[in-house]
Amino acid sequence: MDARLTFLELPEHRLYAPDESPTEPPVVRLRDFTRAFGANTIIDRLDLDIHPGEFVALLGRSGSGKTTLLRTLGGLDDAPGQDVSVPSSRAVVFQDARLLPWKRVWRNVVLGLKGENQRERAHDALREVGLGHRIDAWPLTLSGGEAQRVALARALVREPRLLLLDEPFAALDALTRLKMHGLVLDLWRAHRPAVLMVTHDVDEAIALADRILVLDGGRIAAQERIALPRGERAELTHLLRSKLLGILGGTATSDAVIPFPQGGH
């Protein structure tokens, strides 16, 4: 792997676990993955492993190919003839919740599921995200945060081995976003899927992830592994944020959002 692996060295803390080689095989394995649109190579010979139960955050400039990578992992784009292995049980949560407006919330949750007791299963999943009482609501009557929680329930009811999140909270206000972080962590601890979360928010990545990847120039330009428990990352955040923002090629103009030198979306 010729990606630029960087590890922050802080003598007084042992913040980062060594890159131990886990015994279990990875759930996601990409080797030499390339994706181009016409002459435009977006992902360039990228290698990536994600291990079972690992929470990975993916940072990168706008247009760096984060969504492209996630779409491949989610099977939304196929990658013929490439060395890509992903589990068949996976679920995607998009930035826009993508609920079908003509189906009640619970039918959205079990969309495409086979088997008995669908309503029961939907109800359990909705209770987990705190929306048990909206089981019969129409999606267009939900708030943005509620819709996103339904989308989470819809992903989790499938008990996926790989959960893919594409900027799931970008449209939410700061407070709701914090609540959603707590919820995602709870769900992740309860179900233990491997998670790949695309985000623009460095603080969000630091608060949630075991490992942070920075995508740049079609490769993993940097990665950070955080061993510190999630409750104790306050000190680390400041250091790591400026470092990551540095890697991303901008200066920390705003508190937490990566600036887009080439224009955002």
Partner: peptide, 8 residues
Amino acid sequence: EGARSFGL
């Protein structure tokens, strides 16, 4: 696309 990602 969202629905397809759920295996419909």
